[in-house]
Each structure stands twice: as structure tokens, then as C-alpha cells.
């Protein structure tokens, strides 16, 4: 939710730098033209349209930004950044906010997406490749969707299975040790930021 009054005293002026350092390059160049909103396919579901979110980041409204649904509903379609006259890498900005929210354990209203992304990355590092059956199971369990969530995704799983397109066992690559090392190196690097 957007407060009626924005109290600059309660804002965090270092937030915009934090977002840029996490990969959200160019966000400070936004001049609020709204081009990004015009072509966004998921804007109707967002609590803050992309332009407003960019403003909020620049104003340092850290808490509101990290709690926003917007970043989790970005489809990464790259329409906005392709058209932005200021070269703001909007999907990267969205991703940077997501990474900060996950790192700090912020619990946004959107429950499924953060767990989904974390489980995807878990699968990528654990096996080296995506293993969807486990991913979907973990998402249902961890997001509070429970059995209902599993049932929702079951029909597609069954269709895929019938077509011989659903591997039932994960393929574990030989390089998983390399992937674990990479993840640890990155954690060390980012922890020291």
C-alpha cells in the first residue's frame, strides 16, 4: 500500500544505490515518463505500476518497495526496458529488489513466487538442471498452498507424463560440485558487500 503522505524523513536515501549495486542499473535515470507502464503485460495485477515503483526506489521507500507485489509479477518480458527512453533496465531493477527481499527474508503478500524462484535455484545447484516434480512439491509445501497447489498443477504434469515429457528422476550432472563452489563464492562476495 502507498501511504497518503510520503515522509522523506522515513525514507532511506541509500536504497537506490543498494538496488543499483544488486544489479538494477540505471534506475536513478528514470524521469517518470510512463512508457514502461504502457506495454507491460502484467501491470493490471501489480500493486504499483513499474513507473511508480521506480519513483519509490528513487525516493528511498525501502519498506514499501520490498513489500510490493510488483516485482514478483514481472514476467521478465523485456518490453519496458526495450522502450525506455532513459535506458533503465527495469527487469533487472525488479530482480535486484527481489534479491534484496529474499536475502532479508521479507515476506511479501505474494507468497508463491519467492518460494518458486528459490526452489528453482535450489534445483539448479542441487542437480545442475531443473527437476520440476520436486520443485512443484516444495513450492506447494513451502508457500502454504499445500495439497490445493499440488492439485492445481497436477493436470499439466499428467499430460506431460502421458507424452513422455516428464522425467520422474532428476538428472544430476557431474559438475554439481563446481556449482556449489560458485554459489559459495558468490555468497561470500555478496555477504561482504
Amino acid at each position: 500500500m502507498l501511504p497518503d503522505v510520503i515522509r522523506l524523513k522515513e525514507c532511506d536515501p541509500s536504497f537506490v544505490r543498494e538496488v543499483m549495486e544488486a544489479g538494477g542499473q540505471g534506475v536513478s535515470a528514470c524521469f517518470a515518463c510512463g512508457t514502461c507502464v504502457a506495454g507491460c503485460p502484467t501491470v493490471e495485477a501489480m500493486d504499483h505500476p513499474p513507473r511508480r515503483l521506480m519513483r519509490m526506489i528513487n525516493l528511498g521507500m525501502r519498506e514499501e518497495v520490498l513489500a510490493s507485489d510488483t516485482v514478483w509479477l514481472c514476467a521478465s518480458c523485456n518490453t519496458c526496458n526495450t522502450r525506455c527512453p532513459r535506458g533503465v533496465e527495469i527487469p533487472n531493477v525488479m530482480a535486484a529488489v527481489k534479491s534484496i527481499a529474499i536475502r532479508e527474508g521479507v515476506q511479501p503478500d505474494e507468497r508463491v513466487a519467492p518460494v518458486f524462484y528459490q526452489e528453482m535455484v535450489d534445483s539448479m545447484v542441487r542437480y545442475g538442471r531443473l527437476f520440476e516434480p520436486r520443485m512443484m512439491l516444495m513450492v506447494s509445501l513451502r508457500s502454504g498452498q499445500g495439497v490445493e497447489g499440488l492439485m492445481k498443477n497436477a493436470p499439466l504434469g499428467l499430460e506431460l507424463f502421458k507424452k513422455g515429457k516428464l522425467p520422474l528422476r532428476p538428472h544430476r550432472i557431474k559438475g554439481t560440485k563446481q556449482l556449489k563452489t560458485i554459489l559459495e563464492n558468490i555468497r561470500t562476495m555478496e555477504g561482504g558487500k
Partner: peptide
């Protein structure tokens, strides 16, 4: 030989460096 997942839309939501490293 032994390729790994590209990171898709998930890796950059965790870390921009991971999204390059994968």
C-alpha cells in the same frame, strides 16, 4: 558435455552475479 541450467528468470532474482555465472 555436462551442461547446466541457464538460470532462467530465477537466478537473477537471487543474485545478479549468479545469473551470469550459471
Amino acid at each position: 558435455d555436462d551442461w547446466n541450467c541457464c538460470g532462467a528468470t530465477a537466478a537473477y532474482s537471487i543474485s545478479d552475479t549468479l545469473a551470469v555465472a550459471l
